[in-house]
Amino acid sequence: MPFDSTAETVRAWVDGWVVSRGAADPVAEPWGFTVDVGHVKHATRHVLTADDEPTVRKVAAEVAAPAVWLKAFADPEAVLSWVGPDWTADDPGWLMHTELRRSATAIPEGYAMKTWVRGGVTRVLVTAAGGSFAARGQVAPTGTTAVVDQVETAAAHQRKGLGSLVMRTLHNAAVDSGASIGILGATFEGRALYESLGWRAQSPLVSLYYGPAA
């Protein structure tokens, strides 16, 4: 494991995520971090490095407000029972990591790929004939670690190697920037792709948003 604890991995993930999304600098809390995101449906997120019931219950009660999100790294069913009925879980996920290495890439016939860097974030876009969207992803290096983010393949272009192409391209960009460890928050659908490329799940990742019933 690249870090001695999940809390250290979470800190590296938060540091890279805010760069990737252009969010405010994370504010350290006794239980984790607060990040101002600034979106209408995602104003603020609270990332908990603590995973015990009393702390999760306390934080959920204190920060409950529309457009607020919680991120926790514990059993999803347990977390849901702790936060109460006004919090809704997003798709289940995992915190994952890997040791980054360069690898060869090959663009499948019929596709084109573009990469660019803005604000230290490398973005990859794969397009199909006529320039239509096929796949994308981005990576934000922060020293020796790099956070892979927003990897997506259009439904019509899945199972054609585009996800692997995007990931390998992001790996190479991160290595070129000096990073040696990759971190990401994986969805259920994405985990298989990442594991096929050597990524390992470190802990569950529970995403919740506040939305009390009318």
Rank of each mutant, 00 (worst) to 15 (best):
D51Q: 12
A43G: 13
V79E: 02
T187W: 07
D86R: 06
T49K: 06
H97D: 15
A128G: 13
G178L: 08
P26F: 02
E77R: 11
N172V: 04
E99Q: 15
E77T: 14
A214I: 15
A106S: 12
E152D: 15
D176T: 05
G143I: 00
T105L: 01
A186I: 01
W82Q: 11
V124R: 02
T144I: 15
R45E: 15
A104W: 07
V83M: 06
W94E: 13
L208H: 04
Q150V: 09
D91P: 05
A106T: 13
V83T: 09
F33I: 09
G84N: 08
H157I: 01
G93P: 01
V121R: 10
W199M: 00
E195W: 09
V83F: 06
L208F: 08
S164N: 12
A72P: 04
M96A: 09
V63F: 05
R57H: 02
S81K: 14
V121T: 08
A64T: 02
P54V: 07
G131K: 03
A186R: 05
F3T: 11
A28H: 13
G182D: 06
Y194Q: 01
A23G: 12
P2S: 10
E29R: 13
T145H: 14
A78P: 08
G163L: 04
M96V: 10
Q138C: 08
S132H: 15
E8A: 15
A174E: 07
F133M: 10
T122K: 04
T88Y: 12
F188V: 15
E109I: 09
L100G: 04
G178E: 06
W94D: 12
W17M: 13
M167N: 03
V19T: 11
S81I: 02
E195L: 01
W82L: 01
T105I: 13
S81L: 07
V14D: 00
P212K: 08
G190E: 00
M1P: 12
A173W: 09
S164A: 11
A104C: 03
E189R: 10
T9L: 14
W69T: 10
S103G: 12
W87K: 06
V147R: 11
V147N: 09
F188D: 15
R159T: 10
H157Y: 01
T55E: 05
R118P: 12
L205D: 11
T105Q: 04
A128F: 07
D4Y: 10
S203M: 03
F33M: 08
R102S: 10
L205H: 14
E53V: 06
V18I: 07
R200C: 08
P2L: 09
E29T: 13
L184W: 07
F3S: 10
L125H: 15
D86K: 07
A106D: 13
D86F: 08
R45L: 12
V124Y: 02
Y210N: 01
L170E: 07
R191H: 07
A23C: 12
G211V: 11
H171E: 12
K114R: 14
R136H: 06
L184M: 12
W82F: 00
T55N: 02
V35E: 00
V139F: 01
M167Q: 06
W82C: 01
A72F: 04
G120D: 05
K41R: 15
F3K: 06
P141F: 00
L162M: 03
E53N: 07
Q138G: 10
P85V: 03
V37I: 11
A23W: 02
H157D: 02
S203P: 04
R21W: 13
K58P: 02
Y111G: 02
